[in-house]
Amino acid sequence: METASQGRVQQHGIVGMSPGAYARVLIFFLAPAVLVYTLFSVYPLLDTIISSFYSKQNDGSYVYNGVANFVTLLTDPTWSAPFWNAFINNIKFFLIHMLVQNPIGLLLAALLSLPVLRFRTAYRTLIFMPTMLSVVIIGFTWQLILSPLWGIAKMFLQAFGLGFLFGPWLGEESTALITISLISVWQFVGIPMILIYTALLAIPDELIDAATVDGLNQFQAFFHVKLPLIWPTIGLVSVLTFVNNFNAFDLIYAMKGALAGPNFSADIMGTLFYRVFFGNQLQLGDVSMGATIATMMFLIILCGVMIYLFLIQRRLQRYAF
């Protein structure tokens, strides 16, 4: 018997590999992802947050000035008015998605998951189609449809005797934001639909059979058996909606430009950020204030995610089938 090598210290679980070779393996596999992610995602995010604590001096240099930018953003009327306007608009934008997009998504998913439904795949595929297309395309298409010049929307309303309802919805302060929100809902309803549909399919048929045997009809079975089981998915859909809405930009920029008119009535955080950072016809670009707004957006999204993680997700029981 050879001498036993006593007290062998193993740093890792791969027998016959030196610590150096092990380290090389780790570096080979991890370095590309960590480098690209750190350099192009984490570093810019941290740098943006740091920039929000600096402001530009007349000589072009940047000087640390604490939370002064945030104070300016929230109290100085030239900044706070657009900020609060964008913030409130963004909340409206989010609420319309929550109240229209997600319930419609739920309804469609519930219908699609009914047993013995013909054309299921066709419906699912076609309803998801707008989600595939670029927001630019969608925005412009709807602009054309709603345009009084072309008159498609008016024609449809008139067909139902509702012609008097028609107006230049995109052009009026009172209706621009709601109209754009609904277009966004129209485009993205496929996402909650697919997520909820998947969750519904995962529920075993036996459960519904059991509910039927217990005397529940289809509506009761849905509300008392299926719905409680998919709350976690609805929670996830909600937080995804929140993050995407407070990060939105493309549709409003595509339809209304950086000014999000008329009179900033469709301005949300994303467009405000773009306008402040890059400047526009009305003002010069301001890196520090742009970074400050981005940081505020970061904080808002963080709050939403935290509320989801600590308040909502914890209370939602997950079930494994």
Partner: peptide, 13 residues
């Protein structure tokens, strides 16, 4: 990065 949108770092990007 799953939850925090990369766009917020645009200034620095």
């Amino acid at each position: 990065g799953i939850m925090v949108p990369i766009r917020l770092g645009s200034v620095s990007i």
